[in-house]
Computed example of a mutant assay.
Amino acid sequence: MRLTSFNALVQRLLLAALLGVLLPAMAVTAPATAAADGTVRVKDLGRLQGWRDNALVGYGLVTGLAGTGDSPSNRATRQALSNLLSQFNQEIPPDQVQSRNVAVVMVTASLSVLAREGDTLDVTVTSSGDARSLVGGALLMTPLRAANGRTYALAQGPLSVGGYRYDANGNVVQKNHPTVGSIPGGATVEVGMPRTPGETRQVTFVLGNPDYTTAMRVADAINQALGAGVAEPRDASGIEIRIPEDDRSRPVAFLARIENVWVEPDRRAKVVINERTGTVVAGGDVRIQRVAVSHGDLRVSIAAETSVSQPVLIGSNASGARTALVTNSQMDVTESGAGFVASGNTVADLVQALARMRTNTRDIISILRAVKAAGALHAELVVQ
Rank of each mutant, 00 (worst) to 15 (best):
S128K: 09
V230T: 14
R52E: 14
A55N: 09
P210K: 12
R358P: 15
S182H: 15
R75V: 10
A256R: 10
N223I: 00
L85H: 05
R116T: 13
Y166L: 05
G58N: 06
A379Q: 11
A228C: 00
A27D: 07
A66N: 14
A32D: 13
V252D: 11
A80E: 06
T108R: 08
A215Q: 02
V371M: 11
F6Y: 02
S86D: 15
P251A: 07
Q96C: 07
I241Y: 03
L154H: 01
D332S: 10
G198N: 08
G315S: 05
D332F: 04
L18A: 11
I365V: 15
S309W: 00
L354R: 03
L14A: 12
G157W: 06
F205W: 02
I273D: 08
E335L: 03
D235E: 10
P265S: 11
V371E: 02
L298F: 08
D53A: 11
A338D: 14
T196F: 04
N101Y: 07
G185W: 09
M331T: 10
I367L: 02
L226N: 03
A221P: 01
V383P: 06
L298M: 03
L48Q: 02
Q11N: 12
I273M: 13
R356W: 09
L226P: 05
T77R: 06
E232Q: 08
T120P: 04
L325G: 01
S110A: 08
R257V: 04
S5D: 03
P194A: 04
W51A: 15
D246Y: 01
G278C: 03
N83Q: 13
G186F: 04
G339L: 01
T39K: 10
S160D: 14
I365K: 02
W51T: 10
L134C: 06
S366C: 00
R150W: 04
L368N: 04
T213I: 05
A269T: 11
G163C: 13
D332E: 05
T77I: 00
T124L: 12
V308S: 12
L368I: 08
N171G: 01
Y152E: 12
L159A: 07
P31E: 12
S71D: 07
A153V: 05
P197T: 09
G284R: 14
I241Q: 10
R356D: 13
L140W: 02
F254T: 01
T108E: 14
V341T: 13
N7A: 12
S249H: 11
S128W: 01
T142N: 03
S160P: 10
G278I: 04
G137M: 11
P72G: 07
H177T: 15
E275R: 11
